[in-house]
Amino acid sequence: MAEAETHYILPRAEFDKPVKILIVVAPYYKAIADNLVAGAKAEIEASGGTWELIEVPGALEVPSAIGIAERMSNFDGYVALGCVIRGETTHYETVCNDSSRGITLLGLQGLCIGNAILTVENMTQAEVRADPDRGNKGGGAAAAALHLVALSRKWGASRDGVGFRPARDEYQIAADMKSTPTA
């Protein structure tokens, strides 16, 4: 079982000024969600940060809530929590893939997100991974978000995202720079 595996864990992130984290949880499996939240809260508080908690209906709504919060509030980072247990239909794959894809796309835009939307085969796996004294995936997701916040602060906290950005008032053709008319 994954619980018995050992792996390297980065030292706890440290901050000169407090960090404000939004925990977004889908409490479909309430006991699992409560354990994930407990682990996340403990990790955030251990780093001297503060947190707010919101609940959404399901795992598919977690990325949307994070996107809304990023546009309309002032959080340094986000923790995505929930649990999807395999059932008898392909709905499991859809929820797992799309919630993960949404969170990844937000992260690639520059948001600092730790993801602990558990994707498991059964309730026993979920219980082990969510338990703060065993798998502590909620705490791990909070630690990931905090490490990304630390990197963002180290590198100047750019909020414009990453990736390709077209020139606003110029273009280049065959190494010849030309200005475009501005309106």
Rank of each mutant, 00 (worst) to 15 (best):
R71I: 10
A141F: 08
G102D: 06
V162S: 10
V24P: 07
A142W: 04
V79I: 05
P27N: 05
G49R: 09
A116F: 08
A126W: 00
N74Q: 09
R129D: 00
E88G: 13
F75Y: 15
A65Q: 04
I66Q: 13
K17F: 00
A174V: 13
I103R: 11
S179R: 14
A31V: 00
N122R: 01
P181I: 09
V149L: 03
L60H: 01
E61R: 10
T90V: 08
A31L: 03
A33I: 00
V95R: 00
E127G: 06
I103E: 06
P18L: 07
M1S: 14
G140D: 09
G39D: 12
D16Q: 11
E88Q: 13
G114D: 00
D131P: 02
E70H: 14
T90F: 15
V120F: 08
I173W: 14
A33Q: 05
A13R: 08
V84S: 05
V120C: 09
A65P: 09
T94C: 05
S73G: 02
G58Y: 05
H7Q: 02
R165A: 07
E170F: 10
R71S: 14
A130E: 01
G156C: 09
I85A: 06
E127I: 13
K178H: 15
I44S: 02
V24D: 05
I173Q: 10
E127W: 04
H147N: 13
D169P: 03
H147P: 08
A142C: 06
R165N: 08
A142S: 10
D16G: 12
R12Y: 02
K20S: 11
D34K: 14
N74H: 15
A31H: 04
A126V: 04
L148R: 03
A145N: 03
P181S: 12
M72L: 14
Y29Q: 13
E70P: 02
W155S: 03
L22T: 00
